Amino acid sequence: MQQDRQTDISYEGGQVVAFPKKILSKCSRLPLIQRLYINRMGIFPHAVNHYYKREAGQVSYAVLLYCFDGEGWIILGKKKFILKAGDAYIIPPFSAHSYGAADKSPWSIFWVHIAGSGAGEIADAVKITQKDAPIHTVYSEERNNLFNQMLKTLSNGFSVANLLYANLILPNYLGSFICPASFNSFSTTSPIEENILNEAVLFMKKNVEQKITVEVVAKHIGMSPSFFFKQFKKHTGYSPVAYFNFLKIQKAIQLIHTTQYNISEVGSKIGIDDPYYFSRLFKKQMGISPRQYINEFILPSRTYQ
């Protein structure tokens, strides 16, 4: 009988953004990004016991792993590569591979799964400028800002505008690895002042484990509920309730990946005590149930000994 609990895997502080299947289908039809778009992405700091193994033909996306601390390894075919801080590697689609964190100093990684008709060309592009080995990079605040822009944008919802913005950053981020010598290391990111709707989103995120209403959020930011509802939907594409539920499910995904809670406990941690409602809400957003998500993305990592 399969267990809901992760017994030995925990990445405290980890973040994951996972796309519902209907959103991935939308990305595949958007002309500007259909050749390259993000499938999933995240950060795993100090990823003790992190491990994945995929058979040939199992996945159609490329996998970018960027180690920013510690050490890990990748096996691709008959070759094994060691990744240390500053190293990155792009695994081609459909290839048999495995990777994992070192035992003594487990890696911390930024990772992106990249889908689209051009995903198979990424690794080929790397070979034009790099030998068949990990890409070594120097620390770049600009590179990290690009990643964080993508992650933050997608964490705020899957509107068409967010999908386009994040995925149009993706080629620039990939370029920082494909041609690292040509990548400018200075940061051009300027601070953005938070407005009143940013404050509403921040309030939702801070209270994602609670049961809060539109009226509560509106009162917090000093708006009438009706005006707040109209303004929020206008600027985000979501109703406040739908957006709050989106935040809850994305938080649930992070808990599933980075903690040792079972499915029922995860629901309680995001303020949903009814496991059946949690499962329905999860499936409505992600296209699959929590159990199916675990079977596809979590259980493969438990085969590591």
Rank of each mutant, 00 (worst) to 15 (best):
T303Y: 11
K251C: 02
Y293F: 13
I263N: 01
F244Y: 13
G13N: 04
T153G: 04
S155N: 08
T258A: 10
C179F: 13
L64N: 01
I212E: 03
E55W: 07
D124H: 08
C27L: 09
F232G: 00
F282M: 02
H46A: 08
L174A: 07
L30A: 08
V63Y: 05
E265W: 03
E71P: 00
H50T: 08
R29G: 11
P45N: 12
L202M: 15
K21V: 12
I263M: 04
I298M: 08
F228P: 00
Q231D: 11
K205S: 08
K211M: 10
F44M: 05
A85S: 11
S279V: 03
D69H: 09
Y261P: 02
Y61R: 02
I178F: 03
K152P: 12
V112T: 14
Q305A: 13
M1D: 10
D124R: 10
A218G: 02
M286P: 03
Y238G: 07
L24C: 03
T236K: 04
I82D: 07
K80R: 15
W73C: 04
N167C: 06
V63A: 06
A119L: 05
E142R: 15
Q2K: 13
S159H: 07
Y99A: 07
V266C: 03
K131P: 10
S25N: 15
F147E: 04
Y52A: 03
I221D: 00
L164C: 04
I294F: 03
Q254A: 12
M150I: 14
I91Q: 05
L24Q: 05
S224E: 09
F228G: 00
F68I: 10
V48T: 06
A218W: 04
E71D: 06
G77D: 12
A18K: 03
V48P: 00
R54M: 11
S155L: 06
C27Q: 11
A181S: 15
E71Y: 07
I249T: 02
Q149R: 13
H257R: 00
R143F: 02
I249A: 00
A119K: 02
E71M: 07
K234W: 12
P20Y: 11
E265Q: 11
I82N: 07
F183R: 06
R143W: 03
I169Y: 01
F44T: 02
N148I: 15
A252L: 10
I253E: 00
F183Y: 12
F228D: 01
R5H: 05
H46P: 00
F19E: 01
K21H: 10
A102P: 00
L299Q: 14
H113L: 06
S10R: 15
N262E: 08
L174Q: 05
L255C: 09
R35E: 13
T153N: 03
N245E: 14
F183K: 05
F19P: 01
V216Q: 13
I249V: 13
N198L: 01
Q231T: 12
S117L: 14
I43K: 04
Y173L: 15
K78N: 14
N195I: 13
D132T: 09
K269F: 06
I253Q: 01
Q58A: 12
K248F: 08
R29Q: 13
L168T: 14
T7W: 07
K80S: 11
G120N: 08
K219V: 13
A161T: 15
G222Y: 08
E55L: 10
